[in-house]
Amino acid sequence: MASTRFILHPVLGHQRSRKIFFLYLALSITIGLLVNWKMDSLLHQAGIYPEMIRDGRNGLASILLSTNTRLFLVLFSALIAGTLTAKHVVGPVNRIRNWLEDWEKGIDVPKLAVRKGDKFSDLVRLLNEFRDKIQQSRQ
């Protein structure tokens, strides 16, 4: 699945996107701490204590305010943000690099294709031109 590929490969497998992910993680931890601190102080001011809401009688609210959910949301939001950015940055460059490395190894590479309007379309056009010239010279 394309989305799984983005999470498992570029976000955590590439140095640049890993850095961006950790940056997002630091940001989401800060946001999470601020928001949860404000929420807890608001509940405290209203005289609502954790044991009153975490006893399961408040259904979804109990789940949303549990420590596990809060931690999950912090991690999940950083991962979503990291994936969004990696999709723009790391994916196309990795693809171009792999294509070049395959060619260097002597593998007969097909034409490199990019989506219409891709920011690397000029470079890809030049690379394909280079490949065509070399193939023509072989013949």
Binding site: Y24, L27, L60, A61, L73, I80, A81, L84
Partner: peptide, 21 residues
């Protein structure tokens, strides 16, 4: 947008909990 999503996800979950309470 990625960073805004973080604010929306974390803040939204708390707003939902607040409304429910």
């Amino acid at each position: 947008v990625g960073a805004l999503l973080m604010v929306l996800i974390i803040g939204g979950a708390n707003i939902l909990a607040l409304q429910m309470l």
